[in-house]
Amino acid sequence: MSQLFFGYFAGMIAITSILVVALRNPVYSALSLLVMFFHVAGLFITLHAEFLAAVQIIVYAGAILVLYLFVVMILNVTQDDRYHSQWRIAGVVCIPLFIESILLLSGGAGALNTGSSSLQSEPHEAITANNTLAIGKTLFSTYLFPFEVASLVLLVAMIGAIVIAKRDIGERDA
């Protein structure tokens, strides 16, 4: 059963990813990206990582994709052929990736398994418990300090964007 779901999600992710780069209309590209994000979230759910799935939808589908659509609509780039003549570059990039995947599938697979065996014992704990609860508890106890620093990073980013973009009010009343 889980194999079936994995096959469906993985297949859809592959197809929609190709559509993102192959479609000529940027709005259609963005929409197939959206479909892809939802399927990645589905993949997380099959791994019992519902928190990650929710974050995937909220952050990527909710925030980042909306940003993309805004850019596409504001710049009005409905038909721009500049980015469709890059197949040569794509071909060059594909070759090492292809070789790498062949290597991983044949010889490298054994090496990978030995490396990850020690790490496999840990995730089971998180799966049995409610993992959102577990993440929340860790975030607000063990990782409280970095969590607070991260909140300051966001504060700086937000105020910084406003300061850079606002009009020169200060210079006028001085």
């Binding site: 620093v149 700086v156 910084g160 850079i164």
Partner: peptide, 19 residues
């Protein structure tokens, strides 16, 4: 004394500097 904390500190410093 933790790489995650260190990374966040670096980001906080750099983001302020970019502005």
């Amino acid at each position: 004394s933790d790489l995650l904390t260190l990374y966040l500190g670096t980001e906080l410093m750099s983001l302020s500097l970019y502005v």
